[in-house]
Structure formats: structure tokens, C-alpha cells
Amino acid sequence: MSAPDFDCQPYLCASTLSLKPLADSDFEGMFQAAADPDIWGGHPARDRYKREVFEAYFASLLATKKALTVIDIASGDIVGTSSYYTPPDLPNSIAIGFTFLVRAKWGGNSNRELKQLMLEHAFTAYDIVYFHIATTNIRSQTATMKLGAVHLYDAELKISAAPALAKCYGLTHAQWKASRG
């Protein structure tokens, strides 16, 4: 099932995080969250913590009109971002990616809560959600499998600036329900 009118920038809220459409006014808070070099350690863009590099990245996210700002409800601080996007090799599908969270949100429930919000929204319109992760990003691969997603294939895909090898995962609605059981 596909949904051409799917809202890629919904307002979503859980117990500790809320999501809203990414806006120009989010830049300073988003950069403050992204300015930690350790966030980008396993990522292909290891220098994204630098302001000039992050500015270009932020502009590209903003231009997609599909990116979300992740906000910690208790503090009101921006703690990351994530996006819906159309997989280049599966044009009638939906994927979740371009996600980062501040290190204070690693290892706890935050990534699962973020993905839960996004998955529940995606499953209102799609039967399967995809994730494309750099082969070097073991932390994200592990987190994605903890959601119940399974590795489907590896492919060279142009998801951002240049084609790159990605591990492609899929999570069906049934797998998601079973992983929460």
C-alpha cells in the first residue's frame, strides 16, 4: 500500500519527546544538538559537527519538506532530527532516516520512542517501512534491529549527496506489533 498524500511532517507527541516540522528557526537549537563530534563518529559525514558542514546539511533537510525536529518535552530543548523519505529504489514506499539524537538520549528509550511515533504514523498509510544505514554505522544498525526490522539487502543508493553502499532494512506492521508484544 502506498499513500501519495502521506503527511511527512506531522506533529507527534509521546511521553518524553515531541516531533514537529523542521523550520528555519530551529537552526541554532539543532546545531547545538549536533555540535558533538561523537554523534557523527560512526557516520559517513564525520565532520557534520562543524558549523559550516552542518549549515549545508540543515539546508538540505529543510529543502526536503520531510524533516522533523525532535524536542525533549521536559526541557523544551531540540535533541535531534529524523525524516521520512522515499527510497530511491522503491519509489512507492516510505523510509525513515537522517536521524540523530544527542548522546544524552542514547542507550535509553528515546530512539525507540522517536521511532515508535514515526512508525505508528507511517503504518497508517504503509504496510512496510524501510531504513537505509551506512555499512559503518553499527550503532544505528543495532538500534534498527531492536525495533524488529530485518536486513533485506545491501545496495548502492543515492540517498543524499552521492551514491553510497547502504544496508537496507525493512519493518512490516506485523513485525512491529510482534516486537512490541
Rank of each mutant, 00 (worst) to 15 (best):
I78M: 06
G107I: 11
T142K: 09
A14S: 13
Y11H: 13
Y11E: 14
L152S: 09
T81A: 06
P4L: 10
K158M: 07
K50P: 00
N111Q: 05
K66F: 02
G170D: 03
P10Q: 07
L147M: 12
M145F: 01
P87L: 12
L22D: 00
L68Q: 08
A3Q: 12
A149R: 03
A122E: 08
Y153C: 08
L147A: 01
A59T: 14
A74E: 06
L114H: 06
L19D: 05
H173K: 15
T142H: 10
L114W: 08
L147E: 01
A174D: 14
D47P: 00
H151S: 10
L90A: 08
E28G: 02
N109F: 06
D38T: 11
N92T: 12
M30K: 01
G76H: 03
V53I: 15
G181A: 11
L22G: 00
V70L: 11
A125E: 13
F58D: 09
D7G: 04
Q175A: 13
L90S: 09
F100L: 09
P37A: 10
D7L: 15
H151M: 13
A134V: 11
P44T: 09
T144Y: 01
S110A: 15
A143L: 01
S140Q: 00
I71P: 02
L165C: 04
R46M: 08
K50L: 15
R180L: 11
A164K: 12
S15V: 09
V150L: 11
N92Q: 11
Y130R: 08
L114K: 06
T142A: 11
T69G: 08
E28W: 05
A3L: 13
F54G: 07
T135H: 06
Y11F: 15
Y84P: 00
M30A: 14
P37S: 09
I128N: 07
D127S: 15
I73C: 02
A33Y: 08
T172N: 01
R48N: 13
A166L: 15
R46T: 15
T136D: 14
H121F: 10
T136R: 13
M30Q: 09
A178R: 11
L117Y: 02
G80H: 04
R46N: 07
A14M: 03
A35K: 08
L19P: 01
F27P: 05
E120C: 13
A45D: 14
P4D: 05
D72A: 13
G108C: 00
T64E: 07
P37K: 07
Y57D: 14
S18C: 12
N111E: 02
A33V: 12
Q116N: 11
C13M: 14
T144K: 01
S93K: 06
L101V: 06
Q175W: 03
R48S: 14
T64P: 00
I96C: 04
P87S: 10
P10V: 15
Y153G: 00
D154V: 07
Q175F: 04
A35M: 09
Q116I: 07
